[in-house]
């Protein structure tokens, strides 16, 4: 009797509902960090660096989880496969979609693109701040505010190197900005993709990412 044996949503294979808590928390922390740093915080400010470091930890945790987490959260469940991603988009255009046990192939490519650009933004950001941790930066700013300018002098002599270094650091700054903006554009496409996929599957995909079925 099909009425009684199909699961909710009418599909036996479907992404987890809800997603496991670590995936949900890391997702929203990363989304929040990216939006805050990309749109709100003062570029290069102390808050910007604190948030960037938090994003770094959370990304590292998610990557760890991608190896040891539950099946649907593992990278092995959504390996990047451009051919299947294209096939998925084509079938979406033709209005024929099917469920996948983890991220769909197109979504998976997007997920990796977002993670990679985040890693790039973080790496270039760290390079710009000479890998100083936010605690040190906060302390230095406090020292400067209190009238102790020696830290600035120190930095100036270090940074006063050759013009080659200068152009490299300008390049790094460009990459940081470019990758950050790329990530914001990708995020918009990502959210649009979630909306389209939700409509095609006639199922709200966002809810499992927030709290799942109640």
């Amino acid at each position: 009797m099909s009425l009684a044996t199909t699961k909710r949503g009418g599909a036996e294979i479907a992404p987890p509902d809800p997603w496991d808590p670590l995936v949900r928390i890391t997702h929203w922390v990363i989304a929040g960090a990216v939006l805050w740093n990309g749109l709100i915080s003062k570029p290069g400010g102390t808050v910007h660096v604190w948030i960037g470091w938090i994003a770094l930890v959370v990304l590292a945790l998610r990557i760890l989880w991608g190896f040891v987490g539950p099946r649907e959260a593992r990278f092995a469940s959504f390996l990047p496969d451009p051919r299947r991603a294209v096939a998925h988009v084509l079938s979406l255009l033709r209005g024929r979609v099917r469920e996948h046990p983890s991220h769909n192939p197109a979504g998976a490519i997007m997920v990796y693109a977002l993670w990679l650009s985040l890693a790039l933004v973080i790496a270039t950001g760290l390079q710009m701040t000479e890998w100083k941790n936010p605690v040190t930066i906060t302390e230095e700013k406090a020292a400067v505010a209190a009238g102790d300018w020696s830290v600035l002098v120190n930095n100036a002599t270090e940074g006063d190197a050759h013009s080659e270094d200068m152009s490299l650091s300008r390049l790094i700054k460009e990459v940081h900005e470019l990758a950050a903006n790329l990530m914001l554009v990708l995020a918009v496409v990502h959210v649009a993709g979630v909306a389209v996929e939700s409509m095609a599957l006639k199922r709200n995909l966002v809810r499992p990412m927030i709290r799942g079925r109640s």
């Binding site: 808590p21 890391t26 930890v57």
Partner: peptide, 9 residues
């Protein structure tokens, strides 16, 4: 999971 995230930070 929240605790793990805080711990890691």
């Amino acid at each position: 999971a929240s605790f793990i995230v805080l711990q890691a930070v």
